[in-house]
Simulated scan of single mutants.
Amino acid sequence: MTTLKTMLNETYKGLLIAWNYKFETFLQLVMMGIVFIGIGFIIGGGQVSTGQLTYTLIGYSMWLYSSIVISGMCRDLLGEAQAGTLEQIFMSPVPVFLILIGRSLATLITATINILLFAVVILWTLKANISLQWQGLVIFIITMAGLFGFGFIIAGMTLIFKRVGELAGLTANALLFLNGSMLPVEQFPRWLALVAKTLPTTQGIILLRDTLLKMQPLYELWKDGSLLLLCSQSIIYFGGGLLVFIWCARKAKLQGTLGYY
């Protein structure tokens, strides 16, 4: 009960902070639109194609989630270290990774509102349609589980190396080009496609496009093994990322550098 209450408190606190910085949220929406339209012009060779932009919108939205989750976990721990309160969090009876999940849920909720507003404006402007189905929500949740695990890895490195903001930014930006957000993975060189399919959001983007654009039901995706692959990847990423975070936290404590910045 205490664990759940703590997670909900962290989520609520995060939502209050986001509400108090509404102007920053507005600027984020504007930036999302500018970058997306720029990507559309690059992919279309200077032309804007409704079909291509609709296809890209799904991948771009998942990339936004990737960037927000990975950077958010890193920024939270870094902020606590700078304020000198990081060690107090580790003294809580609630595991730190659950506190991080609570804060990330707040970030996820605000990000979802922003991304939905952005997507609605883009689809209305393009006069395009994306069929919203419950199957897409299932795939999204499974993908986010793997993404949270990847975020734990970056968060663990923050505890040891402290200033890893550049690494978080580099990782998030690399995903934009490697996870099929802009171009289908099938168009990559074979070796690069194999690497891309091991990343935490690539398979999720592929399946979201299959369900939202091609209207494929979940049982077909399960039958051909693609949904099983996504589930396996997310379990490995979440479990592995959590173990890496716990190991990094233990190492930082043994070195006596947990609260050091």
Score class of each variant (00 low, 15 high):
Leu258Ile: 01
Ser66Val: 00
Leu218Arg: 13
Ala172Asp: 06
Ile235Ala: 10
Gly256Ala: 12
Ser131Arg: 09
Met157Cys: 02
Lys162Gln: 14
Ala128Arg: 02
Trp222Tyr: 14
Phe26Pro: 01
Phe23Leu: 09
Phe97Asp: 07
Phe140Ala: 12
Ile99Thr: 14
Thr50His: 02
Pro200Glu: 13
Thr107Met: 12
Thr56Ile: 11
Ala18Trp: 07
Arg75Glu: 02
Val244Gln: 03
Ile43Leu: 15
Ala252Gln: 12
Ala193Glu: 13
Gln28Glu: 02
Asn179Leu: 10
Lys197Ile: 12
Gly180Thr: 09
Gln88Phe: 08
Val96Phe: 10
Lys251Ser: 11
Tyr219Ile: 05
Gly180Ser: 11
Val138Pro: 00
Asn179His: 14
Thr143Asn: 10
Trp19Thr: 12
Leu27Thr: 13
Trp124Val: 13
Leu116Met: 06
Leu78Tyr: 09
Met32Val: 01
Cys231Ile: 15
Thr202Pro: 00
Gly149Ser: 05
Ile34Ala: 15
Ile141Gln: 00
Ala128Ile: 00
Leu227His: 11
Lys127Cys: 01
Val94Leu: 05
Ser232Ala: 15
Arg209Gln: 12
Thr158Leu: 04
Met31Val: 11
Glu186Asp: 14
Met157Val: 03
Ile109Phe: 02
Leu86Tyr: 04
Glu24Phe: 08
Leu194Ala: 10
Val185Ala: 08
Arg103Gln: 14
Leu242Arg: 13
Pro95Cys: 09
Asp210Cys: 02
Leu192Ile: 09
Gly44Asp: 06
Leu229His: 07
Asn173Pro: 02
Arg163Cys: 06
Ile113Lys: 04
Gly51Gln: 15
Asn9Phe: 00
Ile43Asn: 13
Leu132His: 03
Gly14Cys: 09
Ile122Gln: 01
Ile43Tyr: 14
Tyr219Phe: 13
Ser232Val: 15
Leu243Asn: 06
Ile70Met: 12
Leu147Gln: 10
Leu64Ser: 07
Leu221Asn: 06
Gly33Arg: 07
Gln52Val: 12
Leu4Phe: 15
Cys248His: 03
Met144Phe: 15
Gly241Leu: 08
Gly79Gln: 07
Gly204Leu: 13
Ala196Cys: 09
Thr201Arg: 02
Asn173Ile: 01
Asn129Trp: 13
Met32Ser: 11
Leu78Phe: 04
Thr56Phe: 05
Asn173Val: 00
Gly240Leu: 15
Pro93Ala: 04
Thr11Asp: 03
Asn9Gln: 02
Pro200Val: 14
